[in-house]
Simulated scan of single mutants.
Amino acid sequence: MLRPMSGMISLEDVRLFAAVAHHLSFVEAARRTGVPTSTVSRRVAQLEEALGVRLLQRTSRRVGLTGEGARLIERAGPLLDELGSVLDRAADREDEPAGRLRVTAPVMTGAQRIAPALFSFAAQHPRLSLELTLTNAVVPLVEEGIDLAFRAGPVQDADLVARRLWSLPYALAASPRLVKDALRGRSRLARASLGSVPAVLSHPGAAWRLRRRDGSIEEVRPRAQLCVNDPRVAIAAAAQGLGVVCAPREVIEQQGKALVELTITGRTVEPRELFAVYPSRRLLSTRVRLAIDWVMKHR
């Protein structure tokens, strides 16, 4: 249990301890907070001395939470999040957002739609500092200190608020050579043939979501010829004749004659819904709200 305090508690010490606790690394906590590693270590030790307990177990290979450390982060973590949100709102003027805005977005949609909109948003608001990470991984927002994420739906995390932005039409496509050689010159395929079509997938076992005429959804698992986690590379591979790719229709159209759109008898490819996502336990800061509205307007 926590003992009587032997000194003054610094809120900054608690914040740095929380960063170490989230990442179980002094080095990573230092990188995330912009504070030197030696300072992080000293401030955490200072907090332990003030509380009279050991909060972290340190070895040459790893950092772990003690029971007291786990209890402190369980109680203090939500309060720090709330305080951060309050300070964020205090730093924002209603007409001039300020401070750091950390955003993640999918690689392809992020590069083509989200990034240009956010760049123009940042240009309009010089007091804003923008950090944009393009990744198809589902990043834990609170743990990574992310203010806003753009994600394909459905979003089922109860700890997140998801605001639908738009629907992005998807289609199947292949190179003219693959259509000629593997598909016997046909760009319209029967549903039953899809399982044997060579495909370029985002990961092993990935499925194509198709909508039937009655509105129901089915998943098709094609034969993977190539797996690659970057959709831009997947489209390039499809253009080289390595397989059928499922991609945004607008991107397929941008390839010109390099790709031929395929249709499936009685089916259409399910569109992807894009959402703006942020932690539900944080107040929505002015800069996040305005960024979402800007992306909606300028996408």
Rank of each mutant, 00 (worst) to 15 (best):
D159K: 12
L160R: 14
L160F: 07
V161E: 12
V161N: 12
V161R: 07
V161P: 03
V161I: 14
V161Y: 03
A162Y: 03
R163P: 05
R163Q: 15
R163C: 15
R163Y: 11
R164T: 10
R164Q: 11
R164M: 14
L165E: 13
W166S: 05
W166Y: 15
W166Q: 09
S167Y: 02
P169Y: 04
P169V: 12
Y170W: 09
A171L: 07
L172W: 08
L172G: 08
L172N: 03
A173Y: 09
A174T: 05
A174D: 07
A174I: 05
P176C: 08
R177T: 07
L178K: 05
V179T: 06
K180P: 04
K180Q: 12
D181S: 11
D181E: 15
A182C: 04
A182S: 14
A182E: 15
L183R: 03
R184I: 02
G185Y: 02
G185K: 06
S187V: 05
R188F: 04
S193I: 00
S193H: 00
S193R: 03
L194R: 03
G195R: 07
G195T: 09
S196N: 10
S196E: 14
S196M: 09
V197Y: 00
P198D: 01
P198I: 04
P198N: 00
A199L: 01
A199P: 02
A199S: 07
L201G: 06
L201F: 01
H203M: 05
H203A: 14
H203R: 12
P204V: 14
P204Y: 06
P204K: 11
G205F: 02
G205T: 09
A206N: 06
A206V: 09
A206F: 11
A206S: 13
A206L: 05
A206H: 07
W208I: 15
R209N: 10
R209L: 10
L210N: 02
L210Q: 10
R211Q: 10
R211Y: 00
R212Y: 04
R212S: 15
R213K: 08
G215V: 00
G215E: 01
S216T: 07
S216L: 00
E219K: 05
V220Y: 07
V220F: 01
R221D: 01
P222S: 09
R223L: 12
R223D: 09
A224L: 03
L226G: 04
L226R: 08
C227N: 08
C227T: 15
N229R: 08
D230L: 00
P231K: 10
P231S: 01
R232L: 11
V233Q: 08
V233D: 02
A234K: 13
I235E: 12
I235M: 14
A236N: 14
A237T: 06
A237D: 05
A238N: 11
A238Y: 04
A239K: 01
Q240C: 14
Q240E: 15
Q240D: 14
G241D: 10
L242K: 12
G243S: 10
G243E: 06
G243W: 07
G243P: 11
V244N: 08
V245Q: 05
V245K: 14
V245P: 06
V245W: 13
A247T: 11
A247H: 08
A247Y: 09
P248W: 08
P248F: 09
R249G: 05
R249W: 00
E250K: 06
E250L: 12
I252D: 09
E253Y: 04
E253W: 06
Q254L: 12
Q255W: 04
Q255D: 02
Q255F: 09
G256Y: 09
G256M: 04
G256N: 06
V260E: 13
E261H: 02
E261K: 05
